[in-house]
């Protein structure tokens, strides 16, 4: 019996470890077949196209990985509308902070307030009159007030973005508060494009690459002392709810569970509801693997 102890031990180890391999069918277990439409239609299309240009209908899949380039001239479109860009046209043109409902990701929080509704003036600059602070005073919240000669309080990333953990957007507004003794805030070693809505808040729009993006936000004071805060956010591929870097049935299953709700995980177009429009964005990326 003693000679059998080793093999029994080996088998026992194998059996105990078996749960690791059970459930081997994972979201990447299957080859995703891109949309190919129906492969056996003889239909040339029929019926009305609701006023669309006719053109012979040709069978095409819903998604093709790469369809090549088109030039705009092939559309024989009208001109682009000249250069009649103006404040109030809904686009944030160079020199404008905002335009109408387009707030460029700005919120009261990004302007150093605790709550309220940020709006845009007819001069295309932010209006913060409807923004409020919890303490009732004006101006930004945030950092403490350490002695100017010591190290400043580390800058604080605002709570609204602190816990986000992920986003789908390529451009992200990073913002928070700092102590009033802070003279400069650097994001990843650079103060370029860092702006200060008031003496106790800072913000910077940063570009995100896919995957984990790490930032070090450093506040320094007049004496040259500094303190640092780290912030990380993951940029996901739109549609990839299972985070396996592909878009397939398993992601759809996750989306189904979020349908009708506001969960950011399924709200790809960030309109505060998970619905057909988010599903559409998933369909457009169906079969994509990164």
């Amino acid at each position: 019996m003693s000679q059998l102890k080793l093999p029994v031990l080996l088998i026992a180890m194998a059996v105990l470890a078996l749960p690791l391999s059970v459930g081997a069918v994972s979201s990447t277990s299957y080859q995703v077949i891109p949309e190919q439409g129906f492969l056996a239609p003889s239909s040339n299309g029929s019926s009305s196209g609701a006023g669309l240009s006719s053109g012979s209908y040709r069978l095409q899949g819903a998604v093709e990985p790469f369809s090549g380039s088109q030039t705009s001239t092939s559309f024989a479109q009208q001109g682009g509308g000249g250069s009649s860009f103006y404040c109030g046209d809904g686009f944030i043109d160079p020199g404008e902070t905002c335009d109408g409902a387009a707030l460029n990701s700005g919120t009261c929080a990004s302007q150093g307030f605790d709550a309220g509704t940020l709006s845009c003036s007819s001069a295309c600059i932010y209006v913060t009159s409807a923004c409020t602070n919890a303490g009732g005073g004006g101006g930004g919240g945030g950092g403490g007030a350490p002695a100017a000669s010591g190290a400043p309080t580390a800058p604080v990333v605002h709570a609204d973005i602190k816990t986000l953990s992920f986003t789908y957007v390529p451009s992200f507004l990073l913002y928070g508060s700092n102590s009033t003794t802070t003279t400069a805030v650097k994001v990843n070693g650079s103060s370029t494009d860092v702006t200060y809505p008031d003496s106790s808040s800072w913000k910077k729009t940063v570009a995100l690459s896919y995957g984990l993006n790490s930032f070090k936000i450093l506040a320094s004071n007049a004496t040259g002392n500094s303190a640092e805060t780290a912030y990380e956010i993951y940029r996901r591929l739109v549609g990839d709810l299972t985070q396996d870097n592909s878009v397939n049935d398993y992601d759809l299953s996750k989306l189904v569970k979020l349908w009708g709700g506001k969960d950011r995980g399924g709200d790809f177009n960030e309109d505060k509801i998970v619905n057909d429009y988010d599903f559409s964005m998933m369909v457009a990326r169906w079969g994509v693997k990164v």
Binding site: L52, S53, G55, Y57, R58, Q60, G61, A62, V63, E64, F66, S67, G68, S69, Q70, T71, S72, T73, S74, F75, A76, Q77, Q78, G79, G80, G81, G82, S83, F85, D89, F91, A284
Partner: peptide, 22 residues
């Protein structure tokens, strides 16, 4: 803009847009 509709597939790239609003 006011062009006729054309059959296209996704993703579609437009390469030569001049200054303007489309």
């Amino acid at each position: 803009n006011s062009s006729e509709f054309q059959i296209q597939t996704s993703p579609l790239e437009l390469t030569d847009l001049k200054e303007g609003t489309y």
